[in-house]
C-alpha cells in the first residue's frame, strides 16, 4: 500500500479520519484537564496557606 492510498481510505477519507481525529482530540482533552486542574488546585492551596501565615504573623 502506498501513502496516497492510505490517506485516501478507499474514498472514505473524510469519515475515517474525522472519526480518528475527534477521538484523538477528546482523549487528549481528558488528559490535559486533570493536569491543569491539579496545578490550579496546588497553587490555590499554597496561596491560601501563605495568606493565612501572613495574617497570623
Amino acid at each position: 500500500m502506498n501513502l496516497e492510498e492510505f490517506f485516501n481510505m478507499g474514498g472514505y477519507a473524510v469519515y475515517v479520519w474525522s472519526s480518528y481525529g475527534i477521538a484523538l482530540l477528546v482523549l487528549l482533552v481528558n488528559i490535559i484537564a486533570p493536569l491543569r486542574q491539579r496545578k490550579k488546585l496546588l497553587h490555590g492551596i499554597a496561596a491560601t496557606a501563605r495568606r493565612r501565615a501572613r495574617r497570623n504573623a
Partner: peptide, 17 residues
Amino acid sequence: LDRERNSGWVKELAEKT
C-alpha cells in the same frame, strides 16, 4: 487534593510546588 485541602500533607505538598 480538593477534599483534603486543609490537611497538613496537602498544604506541605502545595508549598513545595
